[in-house]
């Protein structure tokens, strides 16, 4: 436990040092996210056809982006600068280092999103209804997304540059999971896939909770199973690719 805490602390400190070193980029990034949030909330929040939970899907997708891409971006960057070899020889499984790093970035995204939503609410005429009961549902949903992050990280071990893979997964999830387009407006076969796509069911349940609609235990169970399956598939895929890359000698190639 102490060991985990030390790795977490090391990653947290590194995150802040990185922000300090490249602060202009981070400031611009926060400004862009504010514009993005404002445009989305103004665009959808003013539309009377949307319920009070209109923003939940977009926020879930925002966190999904961080979780899916962090591990693969890290591997690609570390391979490029040469420090990936140093991470691989440390007495901690690489998937644990990547998981802790992703968790740190997720916490920072959560902080950023919370602060920005408060600023957006204070500076623009919009309403954001929040029900704390959505937190566990979102966390369970994001655990499944973490599995997708491992899948992408595995591909990055082999192909090194996978930004386009990241984009296609991210935009597919944005469109087909109810993040911005309401599920009832999508074709039936996509609606039927809801139970199988990692983000869709979580968004649906989170919206129901926010709109004080009932959530069945069955649906919650399906969400937990769905997320667990994606997480396990992602992790197993990453481990298999890692061992294969170690055998082929391509693990540190850039």
């Amino acid at each position: 436990m102490f060991r985990l805490f030390r790795i977490f602390k090391a990653e947290f400190r590194k995150y802040f040092n990185e922000v300090k070193a490249y602060y202009p980029d981070h400031i611009v990034n926060i400004a862009v996210t504010y514009i993005f949030f404002a445009a989305f909330f103004m665009g959808f929040g003013k539309d009377s056809s949307h319920s009070s939970s209109y923003y939940i899907g977009f926020i879930c997708w925002f966190f999904t982006n961080t979780i899916i891409s962090e591990a693969s971006v890290s591997i690609s960057f570390e391979k490029q600068v040469g420090t990936f070899s140093q991470l691989l020889i440390k007495p901690v499984p690489i998937e644990l280092i990547l998981s802790i790093r992703t968790f740190v970035w997720f916490l920072m995204s959560l902080l950023e999103a919370t602060v920005l939503m408060i600023i957006v609410k204070l500076t623009l005429p919009i309403s954001l209804h929040f029900n704390p009961a959505v937190i566990p549902v979102i966390l369970i949903t994001l655990a499944g997304v973490w599995g997708l992050g491992f899948l992408l990280a595995g591909l990055t071990l082999v192909f090194t540059k996978t930004a386009s893979f990241d984009s296609i997964i991210s935009y597919t999830l944005l469109f087909f999971t109810g993040s911005i387009v309401e599920m009832d407006k999508l074709p039936e076969f996509i609606r039927n896939m809801t139970y199988y796509v990692p983000l869709a069911l979580g968004i649906k349940l989170s919206k129901n909770i926010t709109d004080t609609m009932p959530v069945s235990p069955y649906e919650l169970t399906v969400l937990v199973v769905n997320s667990a399956v994606y997480l396990i598939i992602g992790l197993v895929f990453f481990k298999v690719v890692y061992e294969k890359s170690r055998k082929l000698g391509i693990i540190t190639h850039y």
Binding site: I7, K9, A10
Partner: peptide, 16 residues
């Protein structure tokens, strides 16, 4: 982009 002290704190942390 880090100084030696911060590099040592990071890699030492990974070593436990």
């Amino acid at each position: 982009y880090l100084n030696i002290r911060d590099n040592l704190l990071y890699f030492g942390g990974l070593m436990g």
